[in-house]
Structure formats: C-alpha cells, structure tokens
Design a protein around this nucleic acid. Structure first.
Length: 943
DNA sequence: ATGCTGGAAATATAC
DNA sequence: CAGTATATTTCCAGC
C-alpha cells in the first residue's frame, strides 16, 4: 500500500505536508509516510480518525465511534489544540495549559478547530526558537539552516522525525532528535506500532507541536509511519534495521548533540559499536542485524552522513514505503525487526527519523502522496493542533468521514495535567485493575500481549454518570508511578494490541510524544470498556535519556500506571475532562521476579504503641524479608527507622505478617504519617507503603491520612484496626492512582474540579497535597528522598507509594524534580521558558532554573479553576514550585510532625537513623547531579 | 506462521 | 582501573 503513497519518496513529502501546515508540515510528511504506509488495517482506523480529527472534530462522539473512528477525534483535536496552543505559549505545555483547562471551551475554537489550530501554529515560531533542536519538528527551515544541507534535505521532513521521536518529550529538541533517532531506530525494528513514534524526538516535544504534528498524528499508525517513512529515509542504511538509527541523523545533526554525550550516548554508541557497528557514523553500521535497531543509534550518529543517509535513507524509505519495503531493511535487522519494519516500513521510516529531520526540512513536499497527504495537510492545517493526532491519521481513503463531532476542544488538557477522576455526576472509574506485574516488551521483541487483570481477564474502565447517547472516546496512555505528579512515562508507551483475542477496538494517536490509545466508550456498553487492547512497550533508556528535555532516568524506573481519560462535552460548549490512573504496574522482568511488592496491607494506621499485627499481601516475600518502618523529614531524611518483627513461619510468597513497631514518639497529638517497606536484601526493596501512627489517647478520627488510600485501602478503616486484609490498599501505589478518583485529584491540587468537589473530601484534598507535596518533597529532599510524600503525614495523604527507592530511580526526579516536574507539569511554563530560550532543555535541566514560578504559578491558578485546566496549576506547581508545593504540602505536614520530631524530646524512643536511606538518597542525588551535569553541558554546547 | 511468554544469556551500568 | 553486583536488552524456545 503504502508504497504508493510513497511515491514519492520524496515523500518525505512529508515535507510537503508539513508545509502545509506550516509547521505542521512537518507533520504532514510524516503522515504521509506513515499514514500511508501503515498498513493496514489496523491502523486505518486510526488513520482515519486522525485525519479526521484535524479536520473534523473529533468529537467523535459520534457514533462513529464505532469503530475506529473515534479515534481520531478526540484526541487529536484536543491535543492538537493544546499543542498548538502551547506553542504559542511556550512550549507546549504552556500551550495547553493555556488553554484552559480542561474544558476548554473548545467551543470556541475548536469546533472547527481550525482556527484554533492555527494558532497553535504559532508554535512554529517556537520551533524556530528551538531551533534546531526543538525545531526538530518543524523546522524545515531551521533544519536546513542548521543542518548541512545534505542532511537536511534528505531528512527534510524532518519534522517528522521529530514527531516521531517525539513520542514524548518535548523537551528539547535538538538533542532529542538524536535521541529520537535512536528511538526511532530502535523502533524501527519494533516499530510497528510504535513507531510511529518517533519516540525520540524528544524534542519534539516541545510542544507538541513538533511532535505533534507529525507524530501525533498518527502516530502510529499511519502517520507515524509517515514518520517512519521519513525515518526510513534517514535510515537508509539501516534501513533495514537500523534505520532507525536514523537517529543517526539526528545525532549527527546534533553534532552538537553531542553535547549530550552523556552517558547515554556513549553508551549507545558503544553499544552499537560493540554490537553492531555502528558507530560509525554512517550507517555503516548497519550492522548487524539486530542491532540494527540499536545500531541505529549508532548511526546516528553519525553523522554526517546524513547526507548519505539521506539519499540512502530516502531510498530506503521509499522502499519501505513502497511497501514493503521490505527490502532493504532486511539486512541487519533482526528478523523480527525486519518484519516489523517491513511492514511498517513506514514505521521504519519513521524511525528513521533522522531522515525525517532532514526531510522535514526540506521539502517536503512534493510528493505527497496522494490524496492523503492532502488530506492530512488539510487537516493539519486546519487543525493544527490537530496535529497531533490527526495528522497522521490518515488520509486514507478509508478513512472515514468523520463525523463531526465534536471534539472540539482543541484544547484538551495536556497529558501531564492532573485531572480529577470525577466531577459533578461523572466519575471515571477503573472497575478492574491491571495486574501489578506486566513485562513490557522492547521494540526488538514481539509483543508481550495486553495488560491483564490480576484475576484473569483484562482491566476495565467505566464512566459513571453519563447519560448522553453520544459515544465518547476513552484515552489511555502509560503514566508514571512514582511519587511525583502523574505524567506520561518517558520510558514506556502504550502499545496497541490487535488480533483475534482483542475485543476492544482502539486507535493510536500521539500526543506530545506520548502514544495514546483511543478506545470508544459506548452508551450501549454502559460507557464501559474492557482494556484488552493495551500492551506496554519499553523504550531503551539510552534512547530516552538523551533527549534534551528528559530529566528522568530510566534505570530502575520500571513502574507505570495506566492512565485513562475521557473528555465529556458539556452543554456550555466546554469539555469536561476526567482522568483516572491504575495501580502501579511493574514492567521489569527482573523486578517482577525479585522485588517484593506490597499490594495490600491489613492496616493503614495504628496507635503509637504499636504491637498490632498487620498482614501484607503481595509478591516475592521471603522468609527473611524485613519490614522497615520509616519516618521521613520533609527533606527526605529518615528521622526514624525501625525494623518490624515478622513472623517467618507465617511468611508466604504472597503474604507477610508483621508486628507494627511502636512509634518513636508516644506523645504525638495528631496522626503522623510514616512509611514502611519490605526489604529482601540490599537493593531489593518494595515501594514505600504509607502508614499512620495515631495518638495513643486520642481517638483520632480523621481518616485523612488515608484519604487517598482510604478508599482503596481502607485498609484500616479505622486505621487502627488492622483489619486483616482489607482491601488492597494498593500499597504500592503509587498512590493515588489507585483510587480512581483519587488519582487525579492528586494531581491537581489546584484543580478545582476535583477540588471543588473533592477537595474537601478527603481524597481530593489530600491528594492534591500529595501531589504537590510529593514533588516538592522530592525537590526539597532533593534527592533522594523524595518521598516526602510521607510527610504528608498529617494529611494523611498518602501518596502512593513511594518506593524506597534505593535506587534512585527517580533520582532524577527527585532532584530534578524541580526541573522534571516542571517540565511536565509545568509544561506551559516550561514551554514558555523553553521557547524563548529554546532551551527547553535548559529549563528542565537547569535545575536552577527554577522556573519562573511566578509565571507558572499563575497559570496554575487558573487552571485551578475547576474547569480550567488545572493543568497549569499543577504543572506549575510542580515546577516552580518546588518551593511552593513543598510548602504547601510538605510544610504543612511537617510542621506538626516535624516539630514533634524535632523535639524528639517527646519521643521516648530513640530515633535511629539509618544511613542506608541516605545512601540511597545520595545515589539518587548522584544520579540527578549527573543528569544535571549532562544537561548543562549539553546546554552549554548548544548555546 | 504468529503472537505471547518465560527464561536467561549478553550487555551495560553502577558500585 | 579492575572486579563485582545489578539492571537492561536481546535472544531463544515452547506453546
């Protein structure tokens, strides 16, 4: 099929497309490629939609849903919108945020979207700013400038790439690009689905736009492919496998990029080298097969080659597109990869990204394939925003007409915004939680299937309170599961599963570098969807970490949450957005087999005297497992640590009985939140579980602590009571998510919505706090600890779980926290920040950069308003906040506790401070510092 | 033949 | 800087 499309190799026409849009153009290209390519059927759904989306309103609602359709819609629009918006604002985030809140009124703009979209375009500007890096996306121009011609051209389209890459991050472009490439590359192999994304592109990020557009669109599927196509180009060599590498391109580009050099790069390269070849710049590498994927990376590198690439890439791409493309690719690529690749060739292409880049730049144009492009283009243009989504989507003929719907809102809230799970009569709830373990698959592997429910079957989500007859679209993406605010996970992407065993139709879309699965919610099904179409794809850490804007590290950052969103059109013309996150899911093979996991705890609280027994339910408990209770200071330091007695005889792999130790201070007058974790050895610790000590005398009533949990937990409803077993507290958890409602809430703090309603409520408020707190805490803690969450103690908010992270998984986060947090959340801000400076990267990175809090915050506030996009709010908070939040969350809490603690005096029990924790923290810190360093260095370079 | 797994070797990183 | 411990990725093989 595709081939045809390809037709133009030039295809890369993407370029053209892009052109269309302007920035979008970039996208355009991609789409084409992708779109076309795609193959398939599956995709088509998407495609269609996508396309539509832009054009159409998503809304989707419509019946169309029926199938595929919906796809598009929604998301896209929203996204786009947002994206666009963002740009303008700044970075993406902003954009979104900008918008307003959730609701957005789409109305305004949206519906048509067009208008709105355009605005978004603005983004372009941004890009520019970004420039290259950022630019990735678009930039054709930019690219050109920057890049050597050779490269560019080929790549041209470039944009695409970005997009692809984009997958996630927006961050920075440039670097990203490289990254992306990698990603791409890698993907390539895998690709298929994924591909679409370009992952890499981190940059893209920025706004989405970049990404968005291109990718977005379709990401996946089609579009993406498009991208892919592009990529392909790039890849040339790789094409086969490597193609992906395209990345190379990127890297090459970068040259600078180098900056990043950081480890990742190195690693990769090495890797490549080692393995494949790579390295070399050119493709040469091509290396081997498999590796190929990686190789790509290597390639990436390399550079200069770009040119070469280009051509070759192009060729490759073409081939690919053509169909199959198979051809080429073949080479190195491992079988699997190949297959995929081929099929997807497009995908591959995508991967190529690099090429994309180039391409992007260039020319696009031309070629576009057929109609589609046009379509796309149109769409895009119109939409803009759409970008994301749409684009890709496809043009395919098939595509259906979309309906119209509604979707309007261009401005859907950014994915890193915290949204409530319920508002007014509506509640988005996860009826069946996913299993706590799901081994994610790499691009180089075949799918490992859909996420399943612990009791068999699959997770299910239902929207309660919706009485309209219009179908809606349920969005699903992979979110983080750490104690910071919920945001798209940089190292994991949702993977659409199709086949005989899948009963739920779905469509992929890429929003701001994050793959989003769109699933129809039909009134006839009581607005309930069985999620049997969602797998989890793991992106190589090295590919993601190189992205410029990326501040998180992948190592030991293997837990995710399924995040569901639904956008409900309101009579007022606005759109109400609800979100709920699942319990955490451990995606690492190793971690799943070795790390203890606490799913439930029979008690959530107990009087300071302790002595009660608590039953922990979970996995990987050993006879010698230890349960450590910890009280953390706001800054993350462990004020008190106590090993609880366990009954070895009663220990089973799935359950552990512990005796709650007495708290160090028997005189507390208010509940104190502490944490505990199960330790199977040095680096084998479970996540932190929340626990609350109650004043001995006081009959405390509050439940707050539990709030979040409570629902879930409830465990100790009373707290004290250890009831055996209560529910699952989800200990893990990440907290929030667990509860449906809660989850969101947390995020938002600001938000009104929830808050409004909720705030008061335990959960909500708490949550909010949590979130904020958490971030901060971490921030504060700076490092390691992070967990401050605990602190919240008072509040009882439990964040979810934190992990005792020995590792530092989040390391980055913690420290970076600020940055990291910022980015995500703040997006807007960041965006803005970034934009201006480009440095998006900087923002993130620079720790220092504290974000312009002011700005952000403001934003936040707005969001807060219920309707609004809380997004901002939280985003901001996070960022700027570090400070703030902390204050808010942490401090509040702290005060009490802290005081007491500090006083110790009170505390009868001597406080024992373990160092380990600290060590851990240190580790984290180190990691963080390293990251920061890298970022800075890269930054400098750029500058 | 394909997709989904579970295992585990090969690598890459962290200590 | 080398060696060891861990974590991540890639491969294999079975169903």
């Amino acid at each position: 099929m595709p081939s045809t499309s390809f037709p133009v190799p030039s295809k890369f026409p993407l370029g053209p497309p892009a052109a269309v849009c302007g920035s979008g153009e970039t996208l355009g290209p991609s789409p084409p490629a992708g779109g076309t390519m795609k193959s398939a059927e599956e995709e088509h759904y998407s495609y269609v939609s996508s396309n539509i989306a832009p054009g159409l309103p998503l809304t989707v609602a419509h019946p169309s849903l029926p199938a595929p359709c919906h796809d598009l819609q929604t998301s896209a629009p929203g996204v786009s919108a947002a994206a666009s918006a963002s740009h303008p604002s700044g970075y993406g985030g902003a954009v979104d945020g900008g918008p307003s809140g959730y609701f957005l009124a789409s109305g305004n703009v949206r519906p048509n979207g067009a208008p709105a979209l355009e605005s978004p375009r603005i983004e372009i500007t941004s890009y520019l700013g970004l420039h290259h890096s950022g630019s990735q996306f678009f930039h054709d121009v930019e690219v050109e400038d920057v890049l050597p011609s050779s490269k560019r051209p080929p790549s041209t389209a470039t944009l695409n790439l970005p997009s692809l890459e984009a997958y996630r991050d927006p961050s920075c472009l440039s670097p990203a690009s490289s990254l992306s490439s990698r990603s791409c590359n890698s993907e390539a192999s895998s690709y298929e689905s994924s591909f679409s994304y370009p992952y890499a592109s981190p940059q893209t990020s920025p706004w989405q736009s970049p990404c968005v557009s291109p990718k977005t669109t379709d990401p996946e599927e089609g579009f993406p492919r498009g991208l892919g196509a592009c990529s392909l180009l790039g890849s040339p060599r790789h094409s086969p496998s490597t193609s992906p590498r395209t990345s190379i391109t990127e890297e090459s580009w970068l040259g600078a990029r180098t900056s990043r050099p950081p480890s990742p790069c190195n690693k990769r390269k090495h890797g490549l080298n080692g393995r494949q070849l790579s390295c070399s710049p050119h493709h040469s590498p091509t290396p081997s097969p498999h590796s190929s994927p990686r190789v790509s990376v290597t390639d990436d590198t390399w550079l200069g080659n770009t040119t070469q690439y280009t051509s070759s890439a192009i060729v490759a791409a073409i081939n690919a597109l053509s169909t199959d493309g198979s051809l080429d690719l073949g080479d190195g690529v491992p079988v699997k990869a190949r297959k995929t690749a081929l099929d997807h060739s497009p995908s591959v292409a995508l991967k190529v990204e690099p090429a994309g880049e180039d391409l992007g730049t260039t020319p696009p144009t031309s070629d576009f394939p057929p109609e589609e492009f046009s379509s796309f283009q149109h769409i895009r243009k119109g939409a803009f925003c759409d970008q994301y989504l749409s684009v890709p989507q496809h043009p395919y003929p098939w595509a259906r007409p979309r309906s119209p719907t509604s979707y309007a809102s261009p401005t859907l809230p950014a994915l890193d915004w915290q949204l409530p799970s319920h508002s007014g009569p509506y509640e988005l709830r996860i009826e069946v939680q996913p299993k706590s373990h799901h081994r994610a698959h790499y691009e180089t592997e075949g799918s490992r299937g859909a996420v399943k429910a612990s009791a068999g079957g699959h997770p299910s989500v239902q929207l309660h309170g919706y009485v309209d007859s219009e179908p809606l679209t349920l969005q699903l993406f992979i979110g983080t599961a750490d104690d910071r605010l919920l945001r798209p996970h940089a190292f994991y992407q949702v993977h659409r599963i199709t086949g005989k065993t899948v009963s739920t139709t779905s469509h992929e879309a890429i929003i701001s570098n994050t793959k989003v699965l769109e699933i129809p919610l039909l009134p006839e099904n009581n607005m309930r969807a069985i999620i049997d179409c969602a797998g989890i794809l793991k992106l190589r850490n090295s590919d993601i970490e190189l992205r410029k804007g990326e501040t998180d590290i992948g190592r030991k950052n293997t837990r995710v949450r399924l995040v569901f969103r639904v956008h409900i059109p309101q009579p007022s013309g606005r759109t109400l957005s609800l979100q709920v996150a699942s319990n955490p899911i451990e995606c690492s093979q190793r971690s799943a087999q070795e790390l203890p996991l606490v799913e439930k705890q029979s008690a959530a609280s107990c009087p300071v005297l302790g002595g009660k027994r608590m039953v922990l339910s979970g996995h990987n408990f050993l006879q010698d497992s230890k349960v450590i209770f910890v009280e953390k200071a706001p800054d993350g330091h462990h004020i008190w640590e106590m090993e609880a007695k366990t009954d070895g005889d009663l220990c089973k792999p799935n359950s552990l009985v512990v005796e709650i130790p007495p708290f160090r201070n028997q005189r507390i007058t208010s509940p104190v939140q502490v944490s505990f974790y199960v330790c199977n050895g040095k680096r084998k610790r479970s996540q932190y579980q929340h626990f609350t000590y109650l004043p001995a005398n006081v009959p405390v009533i509050k439940t707050e602590p539990s709030d979040d949990y409570e629902p879930a937990l409830t465990c100790g409803p009373t707290r004290q009571g250890p009831s055996p077993l209560p529910k699952p507290c989800y200990g893990q958890p990440l907290a929030t998510p667990p509860d449906p409602a809660s989850c969101l809430g947390a995020g938002f703090p600001p938000c009104p919505q929830r808050s409004t309603g909720m705030s008061p409520p335990p959960s909500s408020s708490p949550k909010l706090h949590d979130l904020s707190a958490a971030p901060y805490s971490q921030g504060v803690a700076s490092l390691g600890h992070g967990h401050l969450g605990l602190q919240r103690p008072a509040g009882g908010v439990l964040t979810g779980q934190e992990a005792p992270r020995p590792t530092g998984v989040h390391p980055g986060s913690p420290q970076l926290p600020p940055p990291a947090l910022l980015q995500p959340q703040v997006s807007p801000q960041l965006s803005s920040c970034c934009f201006p400076g480009h440095r998006p990267a900087l923002c993130p990175n620079s720790p220092s950069s504290p974000p312009p809090p002011g700005a952000q915050e403001p934003a936040c506030l707005q969001p807060c308003s219920p309707t609004r996009p809380s997004a901002m709010g939280h985003q901001q908070h996070p960022l700027p906040k570090v400070p703030r939040s902390e204050p808010a969350a942490a401090r509040p809490l702290l005060p009490p506790e802290v005081r007491e603690d500090s006083n110790h005096s009170l505390a009868p029990i001597p406080v024992t401070v373990k160092r380990e924790p600290q060590e851990l923290d240190q580790l984290d810190l180190d990691d963080v510092n390293e990251i920061i360093r890298n970022d800075l260095s890269s930054t400098n370079i750029h500058s």
